[in-house]
């Protein structure tokens, strides 16, 4: 059964898969050093990688569990502020502050999920929006601690083994790739576990899931906490990358970009998150004339996808968890 599952993944056979992986890793490691890419392009690739991570986080919540959050930037802000302030007040290295940022975002996610888990649909969505705005207000008004509108400046770059990461030495690019790979692996494992099947059962029919013995509230909360923690990690990466953080860094626009990526790429599709991020982050850069219209285009994407392909470009293959044992044909196919 296990063997069967692994077989039907992105590529068909194992050697092919390993070869592809090796080629991709080599390419990725080579790219920033090759001189083919300007620092500007390395930066965009880093952003694509970051947004892939953020949309994987939202995809877990929205695509797999069916809970739509439009306040995801709030979790990024929690992670980002935790990391930046721990650096500022305690001088701790990035890895420590980022892990704390993740934990903090997870805790805040739990604090939001516990009371709101009985809300459904639109109510929950609006609650997340209110949450995002409240985070912003706290960051703005708690001036003695967060720096208020002054924000946090000159945030230190992460340092590993005595090497400071920059865009120019490709360090941020590698770090973002590693983080995204870890997150991808993590989300992939969750989705293909008992927990993931519970998430999808809740998404498809929470009443039926309850009947089947799934503790809907507990799993919703788990999904929220994991998603928030990943978003917090993204925030912690981002603030050390941009080296500047103020209450407007993670505003509603960021939440909209993340949800647009998930919906365009495909709800419930891991490769979809990558595709969505690549498309939506790069298009304002490629089509410079369109950058003025970028938010109109994000809006159009939401409307048109809902109208014509609500599951997204790569979404909608939710049969995998129900694949039956060898020799037994499921009647859908």
């Amino acid at each position: 059964m296990k063997h069967n599952n692994a077989k039907k993944n992105l590529l068909d056979t194992k050697p092919k898969k390993i070869a592809a992986l090796v080629v991709m890793v080599a390419l990725v490691l080579y790219l920033p050093k090759s001189g083919l890419l300007s620092p500007y392009l390395v930066r965009i690739l880093t952003m694509i990688s970051l947004y892939s991570m953020l949309s994987l986080s939202l995809n877990l919540l929205t695509g797999f569990t069916g809970l739509v959050s439009i306040g995801h930037a709030g979790f990024c802000a929690v992670g980002g502020y935790t990391s930046a302030l721990m650096w500022q007040y305690l001088g701790l290295p990035w890895l420590v502050t980022a892990i704390c940022g993740m934990i903090m975002a997870g805790v805040v996610g739990l604090m939001l999920a516990a009371p709101t888990s009985r809300l459904s649909g639109s109510y929950l969505t609006i609650a997340t929006l209110g949450f995002g705005e409240i985070v912003k207000m706290i960051a703005l008004n708690w001036q003695s601690f967060t720096g208020g509108p002054l924000g946090v400046n000159h945030i230190e770059r992460p340092e590993f083994f005595g090497i400071t990461l920059t865009t120019f030495n490709g360090g941020f690019f590698y770090l973002s790739i590693i983080l995204t790979a870890l997150v991808t692996l993590f989300v992939y494992r969750i989705v293909n576990s008992k927990m993931g099947r519970a998430f999808m059962a809740i998404r498809d029919d929470s009443l039926a899931a309850t009947m089947m013995g799934v503790d809907v509230t507990a799993y919703k909360m788990k999904s929220f906490v994991i998603s928030a923690a990943i978003a917090g990690l993204g925030g912690a990466f981002y603030v050390h990358f941009v080296r500047f953080l103020d209450p407007n860094t993670f505003n509603f626009d960021i939440s909209i970009i993340i949800i647009s990526i998930v919906i365009l790429g495909g709800t419930g599709s891991i490769p979809g998150s990558f595709l969505g991020a690549a498309l939506l982050i790069s298009f304002p850069e490629i089509l410079r004339f369109a950058s003025e219209y970028r938010f109109i285009i994000y809006g159009l994407i939401l409307v048109l996808m809902m109208r014509f392909k609500p599951e997204g470009i790569l979404g909608g293959h939710s049969h995998r968890p129900f694949r039956l044992m060898k020799g037994v044909e499921s009647y859908g196919n």
Binding site: S38, P39, R43, P149, T249
Partner: peptide
């Protein structure tokens, strides 16, 4: 926006033909 500014700065820095910058507007 600080974020846009940081991104533009890297774009400018990476373009060897640009020798100087007039800007940005807000202090932050």
């Amino acid at each position: 926006s600080g974020e846009e500014a940081a991104s533009i700065a890297e774009r400018i820095a990476g373009n060897k033909d640009i020798v100087g910058v007039v800007g940005h507007f807000a202090s932050g």
